[in-house]
Design a protein around this nucleic acid. Structure first.
Length: 308
DNA sequence: TCTAGGGATACTC
DNA sequence: GAGTATCCCTAGA
């Protein structure tokens, strides 16, 4: 408080960003301990990293959003964005909304997942793809001791569009996979179970599957829908060949089917999301109405009693 | 012990 | 004085 503010240098910011890229957000202590970044962040605590990242995230998410508004205001804006994706049970009905009506400002929206950055940027990944993404990440990371959740999230988010609460989803998914015996958990690291490595689907993030290199019979088409651009790349390569074999044509057709199924699934998810956001909007309206009423009563000098 | 979130306060314009 | 950046405190896991 009475302390001098120590301004963040660009070197520190870069170190923080690199640390997050390597370890993931929320791993502030790990970043500090990492010899790659320790020297740059020697004057910073893990809390400093968290605060700085929070601040950077807020700035980033508001870029181009029209100026004005203090930092607290920004936080509110971010949270309201976040709410759209992560509704809280206690504001989903107006009864509970009334119980929190006079809670100061953003407290109502207090349970969004961790970081608030880029909340609306990414569309949620189809949940059904989580397993293949996990296998993909673990296969690509090739860590004999397994990889921790932060590393896995980091890997996936660089290659797929994921929702902000993906880490939580992934955490429970990993637990289930461990329970099913598909993954092994060693300390905090996950790796593909030895019994699974033989049957695990090929990592979809591998370079676009060139048909000539894909063993037709072993291609796990149903289990791992290839990324769309990979599908297109595969088709492109196929179309370039004048002597397309029947197997290749079949493979191409299968890819198209998978792709369309994938699109259909994503579309259905989007519809559900839109419905949920609409309902949230409704709830917010009723909450606002309630606050207005209370405000009017208070300004008339009437006493308002709140049942909590 | 570590992290997230909220609040306080120094700093800048 | 308003807005912003940084620091500090506390609760929860």
């Amino acid at each position: 408080m009475g302390n001098q503010k120590l301004k963040w240098t660009s070197e520190e910011e870069d170190a923080l960003k690199a640390g997050i890229a390597k370890h993931g957000t929320g791993k502030w202590k790990n970043i500090l301990k990492d010899p790659d970044f320790a020297h740059s962040l020697i004057h910073r605590s893990n809390i400093d990293l968290k605060d700085k990242w929070r601040n950077m995230s807020i700035s980033t998410s508001l870029q181009g959003g029209g100026g004005g508004g203090g930092s607290k205001e920004k936080v509110k804006i971010c949270r309201s964005k976040t709410l759209a994706l992560y509704p809280l049970p206690n504001i989903q009905n107006s009864a509970s909304a009334s119980a929190v009506a006079l809670v100061p400002d953003e407290d109502m929206a207090d349970d969004p997942p961790k970081s608030m950055q880029e909340t609306t940027k990414n569309a949620p990944a189809a949940p059904g793809h989580h397993q293949s993404m996990v296998f993909e990440a673990l296969a690509a990371l090739k860590n004999p001791n397994g990889s921790d959740i932060g590393t896995i999230v980091n890997y996936i988010e660089q290659r797929h569009e994921i929702p902000q609460n993906f880490r939580r989803l992934l955490s429970s998914k990993l637990r289930r996979l461990v329970m099913k015996g598909k993954l092994e958990k060693v300390q905090n690291c996950y790796k593909i179970a030895s019994t699974e490595t033989a049957t695990a689907p090929a990592p979809v993030a591998a370079p676009a599957p060139v048909p000539a290199q894909v063993p037709i019979q072993a291609t796990p088409i149903k289990m791992v829908p290839p990324r769309q651009k990979d599908v297109r790349a595969a088709r492109l390569v196929q179309n370039m060949s004048a002597e397309e074999t029947m197997e290749e044509a079949a493979l191409s057709a299968a890819y198209m089917i998978v792709e369309s199924e994938n699109k259909s699934f994503v579309a259905a998810e989007a519809v559900r999301e839109a419905e949920r956001v609409a309902k949230l909007n409704e709830d917010s309206e009723s909450l606002l109405q309630l606050v207005k009423e209370i405000y009017e009563k208070c300004s008339r000098g009437e006493k308002v009693r709140l049942a909590v």
